[in-house]
Write a protein that binds this DNA or RNA. Structure first.
Lengths: 337, 337
DNA sequence: AAACTCAAGGTAACCGGTTACCTTGAGTTT
DNA sequence: AAACTCAAGGTAACCGGTTACCTTGAGTTT
């Protein structure tokens, strides 16, 4: 591999001059010298050694995608949008898949500091409520090492993030069901979302606004996967006074509810309306296709990347961008029977 | 940030000694010295600078995942299995999403050489047949720069790879349909797979073996997405002598066929059997659930990573590992009516 | 006692760049 | 003509490690 020393020798100049030419420095260079150096670089098939550059300059042009899983459309679509934005700006992304383990998350944080990443796009892993503490420690550790952070998926103090107005999303979904005439609306929350979670608040506020009383028997929580959607759906439907509609806080659980309905021979949407949260190809292809609250995923990814790039370009200010979800109406909801 | 110079000063030793202790070199060190250095490292909250290490040692402990897309269960599951294996061995992965563009693929190859990655796990992007040439150039370029490669998804000379016996998979799927009594079996190939593609050969051989003549009207090709599955399915079904079963060469096209059947009011599996290739949660959740040829995805990912790690540990030999697919029987196939 | 061995550590070149500061000399200003 | 300016380039320290080769002296071998 040719180095700038080889070029310098070939052109009878110093490495400083070579470096200046190759990096487009604003230090003045004679056009002849410039041409000579560029020629030599081409002739020697010179490639800059990014590692050496990083060591000398303190910038690695590297960012990390620190996310709970990649086997999931949600993260994957966000990741793609980010990667687009970042690779255009000359950055490359480390794939840091925590597999929903705060331990692995912490290990990655250590590793990333060691590797001097310029920034990280972070969606904290939170399986148990107390994981929150670890999340905060990890953020602290990154900040202490002057690594730029943009978070999404959770709210934290003092760092930039892109958020989605999930309260509004849940509110709108619930409101939509009410408009269809539903009065008994089941709600399947996530397990780690406290009772003050945005989605639950949206659900409750929409009901209250219409003077519909909150029935705790209609509110339950699952762990976000298909099976728990099925189980919780069964529980809700197997009561004396079952709901006529169910709103699940994510996609897979809503599909689980669809399965539960099928198992109980309830026709969706004629006998049961179902709404999910988060969109994916699954919601579209499932039968019946699923009405969902869609988060603007591409926009989230692109925005997170842009926020990070702003920071990397020297803007220090912490900034939260909140995006609005939209209700995608498909075939899983209908007027109450 | 503390450096080994700080530790050396604190302990009154040279940086050589510090480096030896910190890296577990086999150069003998007095236990007292070792303890002193480890203590100092802890006290100073020392973290090695991976960039400096990389420059000095020539190894970055970095590998690249160069894949056509990440918004796809297939790649995503492979990526996760790889990442597992690699992170355990102390490597970290760059996410290089080519978005099915050979241009982006070439750009990444340049970038990766520049970044001195130790290896790349490569699934070449091939949208048009002539992309193959670019793929080969990219492989050459990597090899020229002594970067280890393991490929999957396509076959190339002279590099290690993990392959799946897709011929066998297609053969078995077709055979299964024949055993169910089907004689007219439609086949939807990919567009870039030539007539000598493994899957098509498997399909044809299974038919021939049973003395069933090949009807070219039953063979067509789509571009692997849902819509083309739908369109090609409609075409096949809208003939005088339509097939009683359709085998599509990937998952989404098979689901497209399911849609086509629904559009034509054909009951699956009673009036039409459908088989797909590649498994995913979609195939399981779609109604009816889809019988598919499943590639052993986790095993592929893990194997690719292991092959690469072997190379990184000094084994030079090119090795191809071929894995067997399995037929996952679900609800989309039945005896011919 | 001379020769040898080896534990324990040090010296300094090297990996491939960047950049603050310095030098030189031709052209311009006063 | 002295003082100044600035284009064009060079010097050398620095980023933070690794490692081949050398040194020293205590213990062992003959």
């Amino acid at each position: 591999m040719a180095t700038i020393y080889d070029i310098a020798k070939m052109c009878n100049v110093s490495t400083a001059t070579v470096s200046r030419v190759l990096n487009g420095s604003d230090h003045p260079i004679h056009p002849d010298t410039r041409d000579k150096i560029l020629d030599a670089a081409k002739k020697l098939n010179y490639r800059p050694n990014t590692i050496a550059k990083s060591l000398a300059s303190g910038k690695t042009h590297t960012i990390a995608l620190l996310i709970p899983t990649i086997v999931n459309d949600y993260y994957t679509q966000i990741a793609e949008a980010m990667e687009d934005e970042l690779s255009q700006a000359g950055y490359i992304a480390y794939l840091c898949n925590t597999k929903r383990s705060v331990l692995k998350e912490a290990e990655y944080v250590e590793n990333l500091i060691t590797r001097q990443v310029d920034g990280v796009i972070f969606s904290p892993t939170r399986v148990k409520p107390e994981d929150n503490i670890k999340n905060l420690e990890n953020i602290e550790e990154l900040k202490k090492n002057k690594i730029n952070i943009v978070a999404f998926g959770s709210r934290f103090e003092g760092i930039s993030q892109v958020a989605v107005d999930t309260y509004k999303g849940a509110y709108n979904a619930t409101r939509y069901l009410i408009e269809l005439g539903h009065r008994r609306i089941g709600f399947i929350d996530g397990l780690t979302a406290g009772t003050r979670g945005n989605r639950r608040r949206g659900y409750i506020d929409a009901l209250k606004e219409e003077g519909i009383s909150i029935d705790d028997n209609l509110i339950t929580g699952g762990n976000l996967d298909l099976d728990s959607g099925y189980t919780k759906g069964m529980e809700l439907l197997n009561t004396e006074n079952p709901p006529t509609a169910i709103f699940a806080v994510n996609n897979l659980m809503a599909i689980g509810v669809l399965k539960a309905a099928r198992a109980m021979d309830l026709h969706v949407p004629r006998e049961l309306s179902v709404i999910g949260f988060d969109d994916s190809i699954l919601s579209e292809l499932i039968e019946p296709s699923l009405t969902v609250v869609r988060q603007p995923i591409e926009e989230m990814g692109a925005t997170a990347a842009k926020l990070l790039l702003e920071q990397l370009n020297g803007k220090e200010d912490v900034k939260t961008v909140t995006l609005q979800p939209t209700l995608i109406k498909r075939d899983s909801c209908a007027c109450v029977y």
